[in-house]
Amino acid sequence: MIEFESVGKSYGSLKALDGAELRIPEGSVYGIIGPNGAGKTTAMSIMAGLLKRDTGKVRVAGEDPQRDSKAVRAAVGYMPDFFGVYDGLTAAEYLLFFAATQSVRAQARKAVVADLLALVDLEDKADDDVNGLSRGMKQRLSLARALVHDPSVLILDEPASGLDPRARVHLRELVAELNRMGRTIVISSHILSELEGMCSHLAVIDHGKVVVEGTVDELRNDAVGHRTVRVRVHETAVEAAERWLRDQPEVGSVAVERDVCDFKFAGDDAVGAELLRRAIGADIPVLEWTFQGQSLENIFMSLTVGAEGEQP
């Protein structure tokens, strides 16, 4: 659906994107995470047909945004990380205006606007001045604006930024609903837990490069090259279990707390299963053996360098 192949983009001496590679499958909810200045907004602007790339190839809905920007703009609904507002317009007029700019047929506009207001739960605010809406309502209205021409791809830049918890939940439900309706959704955020609950795929981007991408499960398990296993053993064998674990070549760090040993190891499920078999063979009284998934927060911190250049 959306492909980035070695995409580069510079602003003067600053490389915003440096050979970025992305493959966003159709029908996915694709999260892009990265620190400030990582290149998220630049990538999204290129996807939306707003910015020219310097190098590489981009395909959005089968088209090159640089060659056929209009076709890409027809396929894409873009919601920037801010809410642009015109003075004196009501919520319905705001959407009617953007429906007109998106070449929605004049006869259909009112119905489209009514449907969208219902979708984002702003029916009762149709005649309210846009300026008077709360931030959460404005975000939902902005989402409705991005949907006004019924695009197949939605690009949402930091949509949850500044929203209260209730509004975030509402937004998450909306994104899920839109995805169920068949739309591919690309979403960036700093609120990692939000992306975790919302996205089917994730990409971590840092210093203009896509450090890692894949499904959320793949990232949790593989992204940082090691997995954590939590082993609970009989309380009489904690020291023996710790010694045994430290002797195994696949095992990295080991942390012990009461009868629980947390250890990291490099390898896939087969390696983990082999370790368990060997532990039982070594008479370690294993009561529980659990593969721990990485939290997105951990993955993000492990893979990225802070805006100030400090490794977290």
Binding site: Y11, G37, K40, I46, L50, L51
Partner: peptide, 22 residues
């Protein structure tokens, strides 16, 4: 016209710090 060569054309003000970009 879009796609544009620079962010300025899209309405972003010139940034004082490159860290604030994107």
């Amino acid at each position: 016209r879009v796609p544009a060569r620079s962010e300025r054309t899209l309405g972003k003000r010139r940034r004082r710090s490159t860290n604030a970009s994107s």
